[in-house]
Design a protein around this nucleic acid. Structure first.
Lengths: 171, 171
DNA sequence: TACCCCTAGTTGAGCACTCAACTAAACTCC
DNA sequence: GGAGTTTAGTTGAGTGCTCAACTAGGGGTA
């Protein structure tokens, strides 16, 4: 175990600013959406993805992947959204294990009511203060981070699987 | 109420990538810290700030401000961290309402055990894939967002206050 | 056909957070 | 110096998350 590669003062400053900026942005958007539309940001994202799906229906698994959510989280979320009347669960005929999440009219209306305020919040807190050049840079940076982390998610899943198998082998 | 300023396709792509990148980064760091050190990222931040304070003691309010946390969140967090033995609450002699949070030896050790893994995770997922130029850009962008959102927090607090007063006036 | 493993989705417990309500001490101002 | 207002911090209920355990159906192989 060698000495870790600590952050330089400069890196530390950047990291703390980035952390703070992201934290403030999240908090700002979360509060705006919660107060004005009565939903957390994750539910908003689910409504957006569902509204763009053909027929406004999606299999639970596909919806989980599209929103980078765990199956469990999605299941809980859809349960609550169904209670709100925004979504309807439907059985899958060809695979009896499966389930569809179907956006309802009320769900679409909730999204349409929430969208303008949310978009305005994103625009005014992120896009307005940045120059076009910075926006381009932010896009590049984000894409790079996604590329860096995507294989790592797969690796983590594989490791998880391996650990599980090792545990099971002992019995 | 005029038509909202919707995002262009380009902006939308940038926003979704940024959202995804931040989400993946958060999830990655949260999981790493939770698995390797048994603490959420917010507790790690509290330990860091406390460890850098003179005497490793801070007033609750100051700690809340330094970590951009609500009083309530901090109070709950410190309660749990005290149960873990990482922190000790101490009374303030000069202001009987006040309380100090004092980092314990065990807390410092928990931080020292957690730090290398966390720093390595930050470095490998954020700093390694970015060029020095991009890191500089990210610092600039973050500072701009902070500047944009800081007055807005104050404004939100003022508005909240005003709302409270208006409600109270009615009684 | 029977067996075994894999995949889809749900469930419940536990944790962190928010919000609103609360206690108690300090300040302010007549 | 006493009443009203602020400030410091806590508390409890409700919500969304994670993790692990579970049900149940699909798919392969002998």
């Amino acid at each position: 175990m060698s000495e870790p590669r600590w952050l330089t003062d400069e890196e530390q400053r950047t990291w703390r600013d980035f952390s703070a900026a992201v934290g403030m942005l999240r908090a700002h958007l979360e509060t705006q959406l919660q107060q004005d539309a009565g939903m957390p940001h994750t539910y908003y994202e689910l409504l957006v993805v569902l509204s763009e799906a053909p027929g406004q229906v999606m299999r639970m698994s596909d919806l989980a992947i599209a929103t980078r959510s765990s199956r469990s989280r999605l299941s809980h979320a859809i349960a609550r959204m169904e209670a709100n009347g925004w979504v309807r669960r439907e059985a899958c005929e060809t695979d009896k294990r499966g389930a569809f999440a179907h956006l309802t009219q009320a769900g679409l209306e909730a999204l349409e009511a929430a969208a303008p305020g949310h978009v305005e919040a994103v625009r005014s807190s992120l896009f307005d203060p940045l120059t076009p050049e910075q926006i381009r840079q932010l896009g590049e940076i984000s894409a790079t981070i996604i590329d860096q982390l995507t294989p790592r998610c797969a690796a983590a899943a594989a490791e998880e699987l391996e650990r599980l198998e090792r545990d099971t082998a002992g019995t």
